[in-house]
Every structure is written in structure tokens, then in C-alpha cells.
Amino acid sequence: MGETVSKSLRDRVAAEAAHRCGYCLTDQGVSGAQMHIEHLIPRAMGGGSEQSNLWLSCAWCNSYKGTLIEAVDPESGQLAALFNPRTQRWSEHFT
């Protein structure tokens, strides 16, 4: 069983993410569903539950990403790292 993310840590991550999904930018108030705490490096791949490895994600994006950290780029056919909302800017990555 994985580590539990405390309420205080969850609250800090949610505030840092401005209560928006790091991937689709949906606001918590608009989604109507509880946002997930996403492990950027999944626990299954050795990622921990420290704040620097956590971000907010809607259920849809979290389930789509799953335990992936990279995928095949449809344009180049090359393996590419998935977007990291902690280290990359959404507006630059998705231009």
C-alpha cells in the first residue's frame, strides 16, 4: 500500500496549482469532482509523496496518464517525456 498524502500537504499542492488540473487546466470549481493528487513520477516507478513530486490533476487526466512519464510523440514517432506541470510552462509546451 502506498503512502498517504496528508490533508495539509494536499492543501499546499492544491494552492500551488491554483486549484486547477496541471494537464487540462480545468478549475476544481468547474469540474464538479474532487481533484486527485498526482504523482509526477508514479510510485510504481519509485516516485515519492514529497511535495516536489505532487501536483493536482482532474480524474480524467490522472486516469489517462496512469503510470506513464513518457509516450511516443505522434509527429516525430520518438519517445518523449510527458508534460510536467512543476517544471514546464503549459503555454510553451502546448504551442
Score class of each variant (00 low, 15 high):
M1V: 11
E3Q: 14
E3I: 05
E3K: 15
T4Q: 10
V5F: 04
K7W: 05
L9V: 13
R10M: 01
R12K: 12
R12Q: 09
A17E: 03
A17V: 04
A18Q: 13
A18I: 02
H19N: 09
C21Y: 06
C21A: 10
G22H: 01
G22A: 03
G22W: 00
Y23H: 07
Y23P: 02
T26K: 10
T26L: 10
T26Q: 11
D27A: 13
Q28T: 03
S31E: 10
S31H: 04
S31L: 15
Q34G: 08
Q34P: 04
M35D: 02
M35K: 04
H36W: 04
I37A: 05
E38P: 04
E38L: 02
L40H: 00
R43K: 10
A44M: 07
M45T: 01
G47C: 07
G47L: 07
S49W: 01
S52N: 13
S52I: 13
N53S: 13
W55D: 06
W55R: 06
W60V: 07
W60Q: 08
W60E: 08
C61T: 09
S63E: 12
Y64N: 09
K65I: 15
L68N: 15
E70V: 04
A71F: 09
A71T: 15
V72I: 15
D73T: 10
D73W: 08
E75R: 13
S76G: 07
Q78T: 04
L79Q: 12
L82P: 02
F83R: 01
T87S: 08
T87C: 01
Q88T: 04
W90N: 01
S91L: 13
E92D: 13
